[in-house]
Simulated scan of single mutants.
Amino acid sequence: MTRYRHHLPQLAGGTFLTDGGMETTLIFHDGIDLPHFAAFILLDTAEGRQALDAYYRRYLNLARAQGTGFILDSATWRANPDWGEKLGYDAVRLADANRRSIDMLAAIREDFDRPGAAHVISGAIGPRGDGYKAGRMNAAEAEDYHSAQIAAFASTEADMVSGFTITNVEEAVGIARAAAARAMPVVISFTVETDGRLITGPTIAEAIEQTDEATLAAPAYYMINCAHPTHFADQLARSGRWRARIGGLRANASTKSHAELDESPTLDPGDPHDLGERYRQLMRLLPSLRVMGGCCGTDHRHLAAICEACLPARAA
């Protein structure tokens, strides 16, 4: 049974943390090899499951200490057909991996249950292609492509699905429609370049407005991920009702561009305290901001800095 599929608690207010840069943490801090940046392959071994379990618990312990809710995003950003094929997973194995990722989160959630703190399980969806490049599907193709992964999540205890690092409106529309067809709440998280625009051209405002128009505002809310706040803060300073549709941020630690990060052999952790301060500043522009986490290069230290900067400001 799902807990929150029909009433996502983050829509009712409060602060919810989520995790940081899963893949960069596992690779650069834990020394784990992740072919094609795919964390879901760790579900296949006891050692891999232990690494994922330890990863999630660092953040859940932080949320417990801060008294916030938590969004548990599954380790399935790469668990879609094209990337699965590169990794030797057929449709049956891929669906099983997606389901097992949610089973793991459900078990972890049981250990952290406490009165007054909601822990929401989200099936993480990544783009069909590279999150740093433009996609080529139209909306109908994207809906068909992502349907299998969403169907797998719908058969589990997942409360919602989240499409991360989305670079184009057509793929966002397809994911939202596929989720709506299975009565799954959906969040769309766009990524932008250093000019604050999607690599395909639209501004964040345009991407949100176009997706809402094409889906009858199907997404529960939108997020921005895999970009540093300096890349999109100017965009968020522009007025419009679209800003109230942004419910979460998962920024990168580094100010580097996607191209620079893609070519870097080392991790750029940035400045956790500066990142926290930038989140605090963005809170003033985003009246619906509820979910705060990180993306590439961030870890539990960055989330602690975000909490230090933002939670007192929210309580004030």
Rank of each mutant, 00 (worst) to 15 (best):
T2C: 04
R3C: 08
H6Q: 09
H7L: 03
A12I: 02
T15S: 14
G20Y: 02
G20A: 06
T24W: 00
T25W: 02
L26A: 08
I32T: 00
A38R: 03
I41L: 15
I41A: 13
L43W: 05
R49P: 02
A54G: 09
R58G: 00
L60H: 10
L60K: 10
L62P: 04
R64Q: 14
Q66M: 14
G69T: 03
I71E: 00
L72D: 06
D73G: 06
W77E: 07
P81Y: 08
D82L: 11
W83G: 01
K86D: 13
A95G: 15
N98D: 00
N98H: 08
N98W: 00
R100I: 06
S101C: 14
I108N: 03
R109C: 06
E110M: 01
P115S: 10
H119W: 04
I121N: 02
I121W: 04
A124D: 11
I125G: 06
G126S: 09
G126R: 02
R128F: 07
D130Q: 10
K133R: 14
N138R: 06
Q149N: 08
A152H: 08
A158S: 06
M160I: 11
S162P: 06
S162R: 04
T165G: 03
V169K: 07
V169I: 15
E171H: 10
G174V: 01
R177E: 12
V186K: 01
S189M: 14
E193G: 15
R197V: 14
A205S: 12
E209C: 14
P219F: 10
M223H: 12
M223I: 06
C226K: 08
T230S: 14
A233T: 10
Q235K: 11
L236Y: 08
A237I: 06
A237F: 04
G240D: 12
W242H: 09
G248Y: 02
K256C: 05
K256D: 08
A259L: 11
D262H: 11
G270I: 03
Q281A: 13
R284H: 11
R284W: 05
L285E: 10
S288E: 05
G293E: 06
G293H: 12
C295W: 04
C296I: 02
G297Y: 01
H300Q: 12
R301Y: 11
A305K: 02
A305W: 02
C307E: 14
C310M: 13
P312A: 15
P312Y: 15
A313K: 15
A313P: 10
